[in-house]
Design a protein around this nucleic acid. Structure first.
Lengths: 239, 239
DNA sequence: CGTCAGATTGAGCAGCTTCAACGTATGTGG
DNA sequence: CCACATACGTTGAAGCTGCTCAATCTGACG
């Protein structure tokens, strides 16, 4: 089984065989987290980071009044809390949206990598930088796009990210989120998510049955969502 | 003149004298950027990164229709485009909001640091991770807080960040933004920014005259903005 | 004194939320 | 195998938050 993180990093720059071996060896164990359980809790000070091998996860914050905002959706190959190796205290939770297979990597091992493998360190750093770029893109979408455009933008992004790790099947991806979870992701109410989706289906932009989301008109979808993929850094460069 | 980046990093972990010397030596030159000029342009592929020594800057994206979203406000000590050392192509612009003194650090020098100074590298990495944490916090504020709460949250954050680099004067900070720029930051219209500010002044939360913003009631301001500073990582730890 | 950027105010309206009901599929215990 | 529970999606109506457009005010500056 190929580590999907290797696949992901190789979209950014070449990895040496030695570096691949180091990444494989970094995994201390693999665990399974059930849907709707936290992979990491807010407030925790973990000594390990979690690499998602399979399934969908979400970073989220909850306010006192129960309102929730999802700040990231993670898929296979995503290091959901790599940052925590340096940040120390989790300022948000990470939730399994579906059953998840998670590779556990001790912080001590990551520290060893930073001491001994500068190029690999830079690629892991880049990995967190792309997360940051995605956050910025979500900020602009949230602040300046309509609900429909925001939704279209989100779908475009997720599609490309899944494709990058070989998890898109033609024009179809798995989107195992409820409309309520989508609302928490986009900052919308469940009711409005429902109406926006109906509109997009009627417009012939997407089909969404069960978990399977099909992009029917990529060109128009990117145009509606004002989507440009530069920020995902999906190009080979020396880094 | 002490490099404000040193000040900032020392809020996270101790720096050795050697590391401080390396940071000082990394600066190839200092330049001045006028207000309303780009420090870095969107689409550029720079070979240097910019460290803000003085002044205020903003990261921003612009849509075809002219709508703008500011995704970060930067102050003294902020490495406004450190990420670009690995990301290569700027997916957003960085604008000087006031006249800025900027220290220029060649990417080659940063690469050298990553090869030779793992601990310093981790602190620079952390620096970009805190940027990411701030982005996430802004996302939740944008998605789930009212305009007033969002504004309060923003002021609390900026206040603590300026205090961390010694740029707060008691309860007063410099906030050299127009209401239009504040709107682009919070995702609001200029008109609504104006009304929210009047409300907050009437409530006795803040005073804002010219560039000087004074926090009149910190406790209530944090409560209105549902502000908790964990995400800023302002604690000494071994990293 | 005129000009200009930025702040303020008013009026009308659109987008999205809230509340509440109902529909539909899937699962579960008796 | 039915009765019921549960989770999720869909629909309608009413209302609020924040937007747009447009005018006016204010202070700084040449």
């Amino acid at each position: 089984m190929i580590n999907p993180l290797v696949l992901k990093l190789e979209r950014h720059d070449r990895l040496s065989d030695d570096e691949k071996r180091v990444l494989e060896g970094a995994i201390s164990r693999v665990r399974v987290v059930e849907a709707d359980e936290d992979i990491v809790h807010e407030g925790e000070r973990p000594s390990e980071s979690n690499l998602l091998l399979d399934g969908y996860a979400a970073r989220y914050k909850i306010f006192s009044n129960g309102r929730r905002q999802i700040t990231a959706i993670h898929v296979a190959g995503d290091f959901v809390d790599l940052h925590n190796f340096l940040v120390k205290t989790m300022d948000h939770g990470v939730l399994a949206l579906t059953p998840c297979r998670v590779a556990v990597v001790p912080h001590a091992t990551i520290e060893k990598i930073t001491n001994e493998h500068p190029h690999l360190t830079r690629l892991l750093w880049l990995n967190t930088l792309v997360d940051g770029a995605i956050h910025r893109e979500w900020l602009t979408a949230m602040g300046r796009l309509s609900a429909t455009a925001h939704m279209a933008h989100f779908i475009c992004e997720l599609f490309l990210r899944l494709k990058a790790v070989g998890r898109a099947d033609g024009d179809t991806i798995q989107l195992p989120l409820t409309q309520a979870e989508l609302g928490d992701t986009l900052g919308l109410s469940t009711v409005h998510v429902n109406r926006v989706l109906q509109e997009m289906r009627k417009e012939g932009l997407i089909r969404w049955q069960g978990d399977a989301l099909t992009v029917l008109d990529w060109k128009r979808l990117t145009s509606v969502g004002e989507f440009t993929p530069t920020y995902l850094s999906l190009q080979l460069e020396d880094r």
